[in-house]
Design a protein around this nucleic acid. Structure first.
Lengths: 112, 112
DNA sequence: AATGTATACATAATTTTCTTATGCATATAA
DNA sequence: TTATATGCATAAGAAAATTATGTATACATT
């Protein structure tokens, strides 16, 4: 959990990937799901999450639907059509990045 | 080359890994070696490299040796004893990070 | 009744880490 | 003489985070 800084720059891609899998999610749900699938390693802070969601929405990558749950509010986010294409690009870049970093830190295992 | 932002936070680890393999290197050499081993994908800019080297030196992770090559100057950097331990930690964190990101972007292939 | 934890949103101040631009200087090739 | 390569450095600005704070409801514990 001290290697949080390595995740710098990856947050948007993580959000997009989760939304590709789950159709629609709200902010708090994204933080919890991320904690689960990373076994507690990655804790997305609210100060990082909400500005990121707002930015993706402003760019037209995500669209939002506000829902009342009892007396609480939820803002569900989902990929727009444009967002779906964008997600494919981001994931391709992420895979390229991971491959390159693997090659750097573990050159013996990277057969290529 | 448009996914440079994914490398945010990884620069120090990359430098340390190269120095673990090469004993001593100078700044310009690090940029060139990195370009080579990443097939041109990662271009470390001078504005990022030199401040990073100075910081690692100030922390006692690297030590420097200035050498004159003809009329030019080179500053060779190498790991200190403390830096060698630090490098092992950073590499372990990097591997954990890569594993986690693989799991997120490619859950089907991550058998674990 | 009070306190802590969980759910759910948000933003502001600050820090870290880059990019971009600029500067100095030598060497070599077009 | 102009461009490219080698080699260092820093300053201004942008991006993306951390940390701290705020509002509000709900439930469990002391």
């Amino acid at each position: 959990m001290e290697n949080q800084k390595l995740y710098k720059g990856s947050l948007q891609t993580i959000i997009l990937k989760l939304l590709e899998e789950n159709d629609k999610m709200y902010g708090y749900e994204i933080t919890q799901r991320t904690k689960e699938i990373t076994n507690g390693e990655l804790n997305i802070t609210e100060g990082a999450l909400y500005p990121a969601l707002h930015k993706l929405e402003a760019e037209g990558t995500l669209e939002v639907e506000v829902v009342s749950i009892g007396n609480r509010m939820r803002k569900y986010y989902k990929l727009t059509e444009q967002g779906t294409k964008e997600t494919a690009n981001r994931l391709a870049e992420m895979k390229e990045f991971l491959k390159t970093m693997q090659h750097i830190v573990n050159p013996k295992l990277s057969l290529e």
